[in-house]
Design a protein around this nucleic acid. Structure first.
Lengths: 171, 171
DNA sequence: CGAATCATGTAATGGGTTACATGATTCA
DNA sequence: TGAATCATGTAACCCATTACATGATTCG
């Protein structure tokens, strides 16, 4: 059936569409509002990936007759199955950090020089996450989404602590 | 001069070659031994990227006459300058986590099911890092490399703690 | 001395990023 | 009513991954 290995982007599309059908543009909005914080997707991908998945029978495509002729996608049974299988399979894969600042540190960049910009950015992220978190308290949000958010907050706080300790430190 | 924006891979190549000239294969070995832990690079990239950088005048290329006709690269003054400029420029960019397990969690995967494989992988990584760390104690290793290693250890320990708490937890 | 593994490199493919483009809507 | 911004989509390019391929070396 499938003549390719699905990418994380594929599963993001499937996962979001299983929650609710929508257009690629809808997906863009949802990504930005939710998991985009820890796994962003370029909006152009959402057009190509939905098209691919539809071709593979994992999505249904329904095109507007009038006006913009927008395409609305919904997940098929086959798509749901593929998503389920993926969700039920644990992975041993570890994520690389791929932090640009750390790459510079590795090659000898000055920590104290890097710190202010990083600190500001990480602090802003913490604030943003905490606002979302508070807003979501009591809301009927799936547990998994809450957990990823909390992991994200934790990670950002750690980063703030790290970069703080580099500011004007004794070296 | 340059008609493209250099990628992180470019700077990795420049950074490693500034430490010491070498062939793409040498680079592969060095990456695997050092920064590959938090920023891996496919070996094929090291061939294409060195070629590109040489074309752009940031590397010198010296080809063996005999035998394998291996190409040895070294950084040029222009290359050093580009690297220096990059190292001296702070960045506000934040890294996304892009953790496959977290993506599954986000979409509702069962934490307890995911935990064992993740736990084992993260524990192995901690052990590996700590071995390297110990081995490097007292060695004349640049400070930045030590710091990235320690940040990596910290991160992995946090992951172990997180996944441990999901094992057979009350939910 | 044959097989397995390491060393070394090139070619092909495709996903992801960037650039481009145009139709709607807000708002001064 | 014009400019700016948002909504929506397509096209092109390029880096990164994967696959392929072959020469050396180890070692049973």
């Amino acid at each position: 059936l499938l003549d390719r290995v699905l990418t994380p982007t594929s599963y993001i599309v499937l996962g979001l569409l299983r929650l609710e059908p929508g257009t690629p543009y809808d997906l863009k909005t949802r990504v930005a509002a939710t998991l985009g914080n820890f796994w962003s997707v370029q909006h152009a991908q959402l057009y190509t990936e939905t098209a691919r998945l539809a071709e593979e029978g994992l999505l249904d495509e329904h095109r507007e007759i009038e006006g913009r002729r927008r395409k609305t996608y919904s997940i098929t049974d086959a798509g749901s199955q593929v998503l389920e299988d993926w969700l039920e399979t644990p992975t041993s894969e570890l994520t690389e950090l791929r932090d640009l600042s750390m790459l510079k540190v590795f090659f000898g960049a000055d920590l104290e020089m890097l710190a202010p910009a990083q600190l500001e950015a990480h602090r802003a992220k913490v604030a943003e996450y905490e606002a979302i978190h508070e807003q979501l308290q009591g809301a009927d949000i799936p547990k998994g989404m809450m957990i990823t958010l909390e992991v994200g907050i934790q990670h950002e706080r750690d980063a703030v602590r790290f970069w703080s300790s580099q500011l004007g430190g004794a070296g």
